[in-house]
């Protein structure tokens, strides 16, 4: 069941983005979608709406880039809880460290080992 829910929720996140791109002007690029979704994830998470979605749909909510926003927001909020105002600075990246580091490492390696095909 969780697999079906993950598929549907993950798919729906993408459908919304597709409509945002197709129904607006050329000024909405993939970069704008990614930025918008991360900030959207932060906002949803701040209102406590994102965690329930993860509990319900699992990877359907963590795999879209909104899940990255959720990680950042929860990181800073918990950071504030533990360390006060300093936590607002340290918590976000601490929570998202694995993803960012993985992206930098694998991205760098791929760029070194592969040549674009064109």
């Amino acid at each position: 069941m969780i697999f079906l829910k993950a598929f549907v929720v993950g798919g729906l996140f993408c459908v919304v983005a597709q409509l945002l791109m197709d129904l607006t002007t050329h000024k909405v690029t993939p970069a704008h979608i990614l930025v918008g979704y991360v900030v959207g994830g932060v906002v949803l998470s701040a209102f406590g709406l994102y965690q329930p979605l993860i509990d319900w749909a699992g990877a359907g909510a963590t795999v879209p880039i909104t899940g990255f926003g959720h990680l950042l927001a929860q990181g800073t909020i918990q950071g504030v809880g533990q360390k006060g105002i300093l936590g607002a600075f340290s918590g976000g990246l601490a929570a998202a460290a694995t993803g960012i580091t993985a992206a930098v490492i694998f991205g760098y390696l791929a760029a070194i080992f592969f040549k674009p095909k064109g």
Partner: peptide
């Protein structure tokens, strides 16, 4: 840009929360 806006908005949220 994704990191800039993600980090900034999460920081803002934490500040409001604080």
């Amino acid at each position: 840009p994704v990191l800039v806006f993600g980090i900034f908005s999460a920081w803002l949220v934490a500040l409001l929360y604080y």
